[in-house]
Amino acid sequence: MVCDACQKKVGRIATQDVWKSGSRNTVESGGKKLNENKLLSGKSSRYSPYTTKFNKCKLCKSTIHQPGSAYCQGCAYKLGICGMCGVKILETKNYRQSAV
C-alpha cells in the first residue's frame, strides 16, 4: 500500500508489458532493441539480492524487500498507512482486522 506521491518511487517488475500499441517492449515504439546483450546494455545499478542491504520495519522489525520502504506490508495494511512515507491513506477504525 503506497500513496500517490510514492507511486513513482516503486520499482518495476521484471516481466514485460502485454502487447498493445504504445507499450514499452515493442520494436516500433523504440523500447525494445533487437539482438542486444542485456548484460552489457543494462543499467550499472542493477538489483542484486546479495549486495542489497534490506531495511527493517519501524514497527515490527521484520525485513522489508521493497527498497525505500519504512514499513512492511502487514503493518502498513493494519494501520492504513503508506509503506514508504507513513502518510495515513485509509481509515481503519470500523474495519474488523485480526490481531495477528
Rank of each mutant, 00 (worst) to 15 (best):
Q97Y: 08
D4G: 03
K78G: 14
C72I: 11
C75T: 07
C72G: 11
S29E: 14
K20G: 02
Y71G: 01
C3Y: 07
V27E: 11
K56L: 14
C85G: 07
S62M: 06
Q97E: 13
G74L: 10
I81M: 03
L34W: 04
K53V: 10
C6H: 04
L40D: 09
R24E: 06
Y71H: 05
K33S: 11
V87Y: 02
Y77C: 08
M1D: 06
Q97T: 04
F54R: 07
M84W: 01
G11Q: 08
A70Q: 14
C3I: 07
N35P: 00
Q16F: 14
L79M: 15
R96D: 12
V27T: 09
N25P: 00
G68N: 00
K32C: 09
L40K: 15
C75I: 09
I89P: 01
R46L: 11
T63Q: 10
G42M: 14
T51C: 01
T63C: 03
G80V: 08
V2D: 08
A14M: 02
K9Y: 02
K33R: 13
V87N: 10
G42F: 10
E91M: 03
S48D: 15
L79Q: 14
V2I: 15
N37H: 06
V2N: 11
M1Y: 07
G11D: 07
K56T: 11
Y95N: 06
K32S: 10
E36L: 09
K53D: 02
K58M: 09
C75Y: 09
N94G: 01
Y95W: 05
V2S: 10
K88Y: 02
V87E: 13
A70M: 05
G80W: 10
C6F: 05
S69I: 00
A70Y: 00
P49I: 04
F54V: 03
E36M: 12
T63L: 08
K56Y: 04
L40G: 01
I81C: 02
K8G: 02
A99Y: 10
A99C: 07
K88M: 08
Q73V: 03
Y50F: 13
S45H: 08
N25T: 06
C82M: 03
C75K: 04
G42P: 03
K61T: 14
E36I: 15
C72N: 09
G86D: 05
L59D: 13
L39D: 10
R46Y: 14
K9D: 15
T51Q: 09
S21I: 15
R12S: 12
C75H: 04
Y50D: 12
S44K: 15
A99S: 14
Q16V: 12
G22I: 06
S29W: 05
N25L: 00
F54Q: 04
S45Q: 08
V18G: 09
P67R: 10
K56P: 00
G80M: 08
P49Q: 07
Q73L: 05
G68A: 03
N37L: 06
V18A: 15
S45G: 05
E91Q: 08
N37Y: 02
S62W: 00
Q16I: 12
G30W: 12
L59Y: 06
C60M: 04
N55G: 00
